[in-house]
Structure formats: structure tokens, C-alpha cells
């Protein structure tokens, strides 16, 4: 109850604070530069120069303090030793290059980057194409899209149940091992099965992200002008040709969007590895490795920050590409 009061209080305070700031500051501005009287013209001009900053001020402050400053601070920390007391230059980065776990993480991250966006896009495209053509397609779409709403941790539990292992001869309660034993195979502890366990983790993210890919690509497919499709059919294109030669090239832009967005998700992937294997058995990834260095045992902020900065550097090309596209679109 107390908790609820606090939460309600915070909402009230937050909303009130916003209202007071935006309304009050505008009021103050209008009273300093009243839009009437002898200097009305000048006043309006001056007020209009200041007002945008009242509007964007809080957002800029938040973004600056909570996102821009930490990047700079992390970079600074990455040049220092564990507790930040001594400058070590590129030492942490050199350490990373020689560290087995770091190299394993980079390698695994690359694997994730290849597999997850590719599979999600392919399945998403397949789902979009299939469900767009049938009457119960919308229900189907909803169900494929549903994992989007499930947390990575929840998905971790869901898939661990599927990968559950019982000794050979016992009743298998994990779906995968049940199928395998039914087909005459031996049950496996999938999550410790190097190197395939990486793929069993990736499947979880593919399962979650396919819905996203499907939604974007389905909209793109519908956006293809009817005439081009009709023309292709009249010219005798087979369904396969129609799909791969006419439709796919026209939605390349959307495929790129899906691919880059999922790439970002993949680079940040943390929860799935964290709760399912915690990076053991050769499944470490950068984000989880960083968490290990920052919060486990005796923290090493220098090394942790260096890994974070590596993550940041990998993301940067996509950031630039996004900005470029957004600006191009704005004209």
C-alpha cells in the first residue's frame, strides 16, 4: 500500500513537475517579453528564439545526463585501472585482445549477428507472405507476434522447459528430448552441448524477433503497387518468380530496416544468455561479459567499461546509417 502511494505520488509529482515547468516557463517568458505594447514585434521575436529551448530543455537534459555523459565517462574509465585510480591508456583494450573469454564473446557475438537477423528476417518474410493470403491470417499474425510481449527472462524459462533433460530411459518432459528419443536418438543436455548450445540460445531470440520482422515486412509487401504484380502475372511469372524477382527487390529497404534493428537487439543481448547459461559452456557474449566484470566478484570498472566501449563502437556504423537514412527521408 505504501508502495502504491509512493508510485502514485511519483506520477503526480512527475506530471505536476512537467506541467509546472512547461506552463510556468512559458508564462515567465511571456511576462518578460510581453507580445504586446510598443516593443511587441521585438519581444515576440526574442521569445520565439527562447521558447523552443523551454520545450526541448528537459528532454535534452535527460538525454545528455543519462546517455551522452555516460558514454564519455565510460570511455574515460576504460582508460583507467579497476577502481579508476591509475591511468593505463590502452591497457584494458590490449588485455581484452589477449583474453580468451573476450575473444570467445566476440566470436559468439559475430555468430549471433549472422544467424539471428538472417533467420528472423527469413521467417518474418515467410510468415508475412503466408498470413497475408489467408482469411485467418490476422489471428496467425497475432500469435507469431505474441513472443514480442514476453520478457527475455520469461522466454528463457519457456525455452528451458523445452530443452529440459532427463536421463536416458526416464520419461522426457522436455519437448525437444522427447522428440529426439521418439525418433530413436539419445537425450542431450542441449544447453551444455558445445558449440551447438549457442544456436539453442539464438533460437530464443529468433522466436521473439520474427514477429517484429513479420509486421514490418507485411506492411512493406502490402505497399507494393498492384500494377507491378499484375504486370508480372500477365507476363507469366510463376509464384516463385513473383516473390523473389518482383516482391523481394521492392521491399529491400524494409528488409534493411528489419536487419539493422535486429542487429542492434542482438548486440545488446544480455538477458537470454544471463539466465539460461550465464555465459558458461562457451556461450559468453559481450554484454554478459561486461556485466561479469562490472558487477560480479570484485568489480573491474576499467575492463568492464572497455568492453562497453567496444560494444558502442560496434553499434556506431548502424547509428550513422540510421541518421543518414532519417535525414534523407526528411529531405
Amino acid at each position: 500500500m505504501e508502495l502504491f502511494l509512493m508510485a502514485a505520488g511519483t506520477i503526480a509529482m512527475g506530471v505536476l513537475g512537467c506541467v509546472v515547468w512547461f506552463w510556468g516557463s512559458n508564462l515567465v517568458l511571456d511576462s518578460i517579453y510581453p507580445p504586446r505594447g510598443r516593443n511587441a514585434g521585438d519581444n515576440i521575436r526574442r521569445a520565439n528564439m527562447i521558447r523552443p529551448w523551454l520545450f526541448v530543455g528537459p528532454a535534452v537534459l535527460f538525454l545528455g545526463v543519462y546517455l551522452v555523459y555516460p558514454v564519455i565517462d565510460s570511455f574515460w574509465r576504460s582508460l583507467h585501472n579497476a577502481d579508476g585510480s591509475r591511468f593505463v591508456g590502452a591497457g584494458n583494450y590490449l588485455w581484452a585482445l589477449g583474453d580468451d573469454k573476450f575473444r570467445e564473446s566476440i566470436w559468439n557475438n559475430l555468430l549471433w549477428l549472422l544467424v539471428v537477423p538472417a533467420l528472423s528476417t527469413v521467417f518474418g518474410l515467410l510468415a508475412a507472405q503466408l498470413t497475408d493470403r489467408i482469411r485467418w491470417g490476422n489471428i496467425g499474425k497475432s500469435l507469431i507476434f505474441m513472443p514480442m510481449a514476453i520478457s527475455f527472462v520469461g522466454a528463457g524459462v519457456i525455452w528451458k522447459l523445452i530443452y529440459e533433460f532427463r536421463e536416458s530411459g526416464e520419461t522426457q518432459i522436455g519437448l525437444l528430448n522427447w522428440i529426439v528419443t521418439r525418433l530413436g536418438g539419445e537425450p542431450q543436455i542441449w544447453l551444455t552441448l558445445i558449440p551447438w548450445n549457442n544456436f539453442f540460445l539464438m533460437i530464443v531470440l529468433v522466436w521473439i524477433q520474427t514477429g517484429f520482422a513479420m509486421v514490418i515486412l507485411s506492411a512493406a509487401l502490402r505497399g507494393i503497387p498492384e500494377e507491378t504484380i499484375e504486370a508480372a502475372i500477365l507476363d507469366g511469372a510463376s509464384p516463385w518468380q513473383l516473390f523473389f524477382k518482383i516482391k523481394v527487390p521492392q521491399i529491400m529497404g524494409s528488409i534493411a530496416v528489419v536487419w539493422t534493428t535486429i542487429t542492434i537487439v542482438v548486440l545488446k543481448v544480455f538477458d537470454i544468455v544471463f539466465v539460461m547459461t550465464n555465459g558458461q559452456w562457451g556461450t559468453q557474449v559481450l554484454a554478459n561479459l561486461m556485466y561479469d566484470w562490472m558487477f560480479r566478484g570484485s568489480p573491474d570498472y576499467g575492463r568492464g567499461s572497455a568492453i562497453a566501449i567496444v560494444l558502442m563502437i560496434v553499434v556506431t556504423p548502424i547509428m550513422v546509417w540510421n541518421i543518414y537514412n532519417a535525414r534523407k527521408e526528411a529531405g
Binding site: 523552443p52 520545450f55 535534452v60 538525454l63 551522452v68 555516460p70 574509465r77 554484454a287 532519417a326 526528411a330
Partner: peptide, 28 residues
């Protein structure tokens, strides 16, 4: 609204969309 720096701010917001949260944990 028209003001100097608007395009830059917009680009900045787009850029910040992809910043990995992990970077900001310790400093914050």
C-alpha cells in the same frame, strides 16, 4: 518550431536510439 540546432538535435535523438544501455550503467 524553428530554431538553430533543430536538425542536429533530431539527428542526435536518432543516434541515441541505438546506444547500448550497458555503457551507461556504471557512470549512472
Amino acid at each position: 518550431m524553428r530554431f538553430p540546432g533543430r536538425a542536429l538535435l533530431t539527428a542526435g535523438v536518432v543516434g541515441l536510439l541505438v546506444v547500448p544501455l550497458q555503457v551507461s550503467l556504471i557512470p549512472l
